[in-house]
């Protein structure tokens, strides 16, 4: 506990003017995450200096890319006050559809048709989810829980118990080697992050999503359409999931039906650890991205700690510990801010 407090509190112990303190308060989560990331890297780096090589970090970023892409979408969904836990199954379904369309052993359709169709299907399923949530008024956690189960079943049915391999040479080559030496998934992630950042900071639509999340009632009175905003947030998530599938899946040797299992929980975890309020209305993109890096770097870091097979098995435990550290330190901090009489927002 005292450790986690020093992580976050020492930044604003000096008396400063209100606006500066306010900005520091907002940046708390990011600072804590950055500290955790650098601490982990330093500890691993001292143990084995090769951890700081370009190749290792390139590998870590490639692993981060699909999570970061999808997290941008899920973050917007959470900002509007909803949640999406179906992205892992959606990813599997899209991978199966894409694989069957493009694979040389199956339908062998050109990439120029297959990829847009995959993107379109992803967006369509996202919009469908959004319409159930906004027009059907079914709680989003239930819709996406149902889809999580149903889409996974659909995927297994489509794969028919076989794995799909032999994706077109061109696609796998591009996915592995990338463009001008930068892996394609990193490029895609950079593009998506740029787009989402512009969306949040410079386009009214982004601000409207935040407005909807902080108070649906006021947003409605201000004349915002809840249905349209939610359709957009879920559709965007679907689109990004398709994009993540397209850039990430061809790197794998074959497509199995188990792809993306528990991916949804990883993404939601990153969004939450990144400081997005689960009740909606607040959260910053940079925090989410830092959380993605933190969660993803644990496994590579453990392999560098030179404890062999045994180490990797602890990945999940350390992930869980970091999540707890992030949320507990945050809560301790905000607890001191507001007076303890307040009931937490459900």
């Amino acid at each position: 506990m005292s450790n986690s407090q020093t992580l976050t509190v020492d930044h604003d112990s000096r008396p400063v003017c209100f606006s500066t303190r306010f900005f520091r308060l907002i940046r708390q989560r990011e600072a804590g995450l950055l500290l955790l990331i650098s601490l982990t890297s330093v500890v691993v780096g001292i143990h084995d200096v090769r951890f700081f090589s370009v190749d290792v970090w390139r590998d870590i970023l490639v692993r981060c890319a699909p999570t970061a892409i999808v997290a941008c979408g899920v973050m917007l969904v959470v900002v509007t006050g909803e949640i999406d836990i179906s992205v892992g199954s959606l990813m599997a379904l899209l991978a199966a559809v894409m694989g069957r369309m493009l694979s040389e052993q199956e339908f062998d359709i050109s990439c120029w048709i297959g990829i847009p169709v995959t993107l379109g299907l992803g967006t369509l399923i996202g919009v469908f989810t959004g319409s159930l949530v906004s027009m059907g008024r079914v709680p989003s956690i239930i819709v996406t829980l149902g889809l999580l189960t149903a889409l996974r079943g659909l995927t297994t049915l489509m794969m028919g118990g076989k794995n799909i391999d032999r994706l077109p040479e061109g696609l796998t080559q591009v996915a592995k080697q990338g463009f001008l030496g930068v892996p394609i998934s990193i490029l895609a992630a950079a593009g998506v992050i740029g787009l989402t950042s512009v969306l949040i900071h410079h386009i009214p639509l982004g601000r409207r999503l935040y407005a909807l999340g902080s108070s649906a009632e006021s947003a409605r009175m201000a004349g915002l359409s809840e249905v349209r905003l939610k359709l957009f947030a879920f559709g965007y998530t679907g689109f990004l999931t398709a994009l993540a599938t397209i850039v990430d899946v061809p790197r794998l040797p074959k497509i199995e039906s188990g792809i993306g299992s528990e991916f949804e929980l990883l993404v939601v975890t990153c969004v939450v650890v990144g400081g997005v309020a689960i009740s909606g209305g607040q959260g910053r993109l940079i925090g989410v991205l830092l959380a993605v890096v933190l969660m993803t770097m644990i496994r590579p870091a453990l392999t560098f700690m030179d404890i062999g097979e045994a180490g990797e098995k602890w990945t999940r435990a350390i992930q869980g510990m970091f999540i707890l550290l992030a949320v507990v330190s945050d809560s301790l901090f905000s607890w001191r801010q507001r007076h303890s009489g307040k009931v937490h927002a459900a």
Binding site: V272, R316, Q319, G320, I323, S331, H344
Partner: peptide, 17 residues
């Protein structure tokens, strides 16, 4: 006073880990 979804998401990973 953490949100139950967040707490149990964390312990979901931690206990299994």
């Amino acid at each position: 006073r953490l949100h139950p979804l967040i707490v149990t998401l964390a312990t979901f990973a931690a206990y299994r880990g």
